[in-house]
């Protein structure tokens, strides 16, 4: 993990290991994904993100490599699976 990632996670109230706080309810529905805003991009395909309640976590962005700071991502089980696209909405 890069220095940046460490710094980011220390600011976050929940690190990746405890990122369940991002999920409002049952994660095993498996079709639940939480919208979050990207705050910082880190090394190793990770991003520090914040959900609507201000809770932060590090998530993997391997599947949304186009993610930039300010983007809204959908996160499912610690991995971003989609980026919200304003043009398509």
């Amino acid at each position: 993990m890069s220095e940046g990632a460490k710094e980011g996670s220390s600011k976050a109230p929940s690190q990746v290991g405890e990122s369940h706080s991002l999920a409002p309810r049952c994660v095993t529905c498996q079709d639940e994904a939480v919208p979050v805003t990207v705050l910082e991009l880190h090394a190793d395909a990770q991003a520090l993100v914040e959900n609507g309640s201000g809770q932060r976590a590090l998530v993997a962005i391997d599947f949304t490599p186009e993610a930039r700071v300010g983007d809204i991502l959908l996160v499912h089980s610690g991995v971003a699976i989609a980026r919200l696209d304003e043009e398509r909405s």
């Binding site: 095993t28 498996q30 994904a33 391997d62 599947f63 499912h76 991995v79 699976i81």
Partner: peptide
């Protein structure tokens, strides 16, 4: 591991 195609990518990763 359990779940549909929503979750399978995180297991794959």
């Amino acid at each position: 591991a359990i779940g549909f195609e929503t979750t399978a990518p995180s297991t794959a990763l």
